[in-house]
Design a protein around this nucleic acid. Structure first.
Length: 292
DNA sequence: TGGGCAGAGCACATCTCTGA
DNA sequence: TCAGAGATGTGCTCTGCCCA
C-alpha cells in the first residue's frame, strides 16, 4: 500500500481538475477531453440508456480511436461494411450491431435523456423529465423554475438540466440526433394505458427467468409503479427472483411483502397478485403513495 | 469445433441529493 | 439533520460470437 494523492490535472488531457466545495469528486473541465468522450459514449450505448445490443465499451473505444465515433450522433453514421472488415468482427456481428443501432433510434425519450449524460440525471430523473416535457425540444425551452417544479427534482438537478439545455454544443447535438433519425419525443398515448400499479413502490432483486430486470422495470413503470433500487419502509413489495441476496432479509426485517417472479408476471398481465392486495389496500387507505 | 474474448446481467458498496 | 432513494463504480459469472 502507498499513500495516494489525488491528481491536480486530468490524467487524460492534462487540464486542471475542478472540485466543488463539500463534494468529494473532482472533474476534468475540458469538454473535449478524450477520456470524457469515451465515457460519454459508453454511458450512451449502455443498457440503462440507449441499450445498443452488441456494442460495449471495448468496441466503442475502437470506433472512437479510429475516429469513426466522435459524439453520440456519429454512432448512427457508422459505415457497416468497414465495421464488418475489422479484425474480430465479421458480417454477422456487423449486421447484428447495425440492427441494434437502428433499433435504438426509437428508444423512449427517458432513455435518450439519460444517455446524454447530464450530471445527476439517471434513470428515475430522466423518467420524471420525459413524463413532464414529452420532448427534448420542450425540455430545451424550459426555464430552471419549470424544471424544478417537477416533484422529485430540486434546485441542483434543475440547474444541471437547465445548464445543459443552455449550452450551444448540446443544442447542436440534439439537432444532429434528430437529423440522423433518433426519436426525440415520446408518443403520447392519450391516457389509455392501464396504470393499475399507480401508487405502488416495488424493488426487484435476484435473477428473473421470463424477462430481464430492465425489461421488468420498464413494464412496471409503464403500469404506473414506482420502481426503486433499495428496500425501505415505503416499499410496497419486494419481487425476488432466483439467487436473491440481502434485500430479501432487509424486506423481512421491515415486514415488506416478498413476492415471487410468478407474482410479477401476474402484475404485468394487468392483474393484482393476492400477496400484494393487503399492501395495496394500505396504500389506498393512506391516500396514495408519496411519489404518485 | 473449441478456445478466447467481449458483452450481458446482476449484486453490492459507497457517495450524493432531495425533501421532510 | 436525517432517512430514503438514486447515481456511480466494481467485480463476478454466464453467454454467445469470431476465428484459427
Amino acid at each position: 500500500e502507498q499513500p495516494y494523492a489525488m491528481p491536480d490535472a486530468c490524467p487524460s488531457c492534462g487540464t486542471p481538475v475542478h472540485r466543488d466545495e463539500d463534494v468529494a469528486m473532482r472533474y476534468c473541465t475540458n469538454a473535449a477531453c478524450p477520456a470524457q468522450l469515451k465515457e460519454r459514449i459508453h454511458h450512451f450505448i449502455g443498457r440503462p440508456a440507449m441499450d445498443i445490443d452488441g456494442m460495449g465499451a471495448k468496441l466503442a473505444d475502437r470506433f472512437i480511436d479510429l475516429g469513426w465515433i466522435y459524439d453520440v450522433a456519429s454512432i448512427y453514421q457508422l459505415d457497416w461494411e468497414a465495421v464488418a472488415a475489422l479484425e474480430g468482427m465479421g458480417e454477422t456481428s456487423a449486421a447484428n450491431l447495425a440492427k441494434a443501432v437502428e433499433k435504438s433510434k426509437n428508444q423512449p425519450l427517458w432513455r435518450l435523456i439519460h444517455g446524454l449524460g447530464i450530471r445527476h440525471v439517471g434513470e428515475r430523473t430522466a423518467n420524471l423529465v420525459a413524463d413532464r416535457f414529452g420532448s427534448l425540444d420542450a425540455l430545451l425551452g424550459a426555464s430552471a423554475e419549470e424544471i424544478a417544479a417537477i416533484p422529485g427534482i430540486g434546485g441542483i438537478l434543475a440547474g444541471s438540466l437547465y445548464d445543459f439545455a443552455q449550452e450551444e454544443p448540446n443544442r447542436q447535438l440534439v439537432e444532429r440526433l434528430k437529423a440522423v433519425g433518433v426519436r426525440t419525443a415520446d408518443e403520447r398515448s392519450g391516457g389509455d394505458t392501464a396504470r393499475q400499479l399507480e401508487g405502488v413502490t416495488l424493488v426487484l432483486t435476484g435473477r428473473l427467468d421470463a424477462l430481464t430486470r430492465p425489461e421488468a422495470e420498464e413494464r412496471l413503470r409503464r403500469a404506473g409503479a414506482n420502481v426503486t433500487s433499495s428496500v425501505s419502509k415505503k416499499t410496497t413489495a419486494l419481487i425476488a427472483g432466483a439467487d436473491a441476496g440481502s434485500k430479501v432479509d432487509k424486506a423481512r426485517e421491515l415486514k415488506v411483502p416478498v413476492l415471487e417472479e410468478a407474482d410479477l408476471l401476474v402484475m404485468l398481465d394487468g392483474r393484482m397478485p393476492e400477496a400484494l392486495m393487503p399492501a395495496v389496500v394500505a396504500v389506498e387507505e393512506a391516500g396514495g403513495a408519496p411519489d404518485s
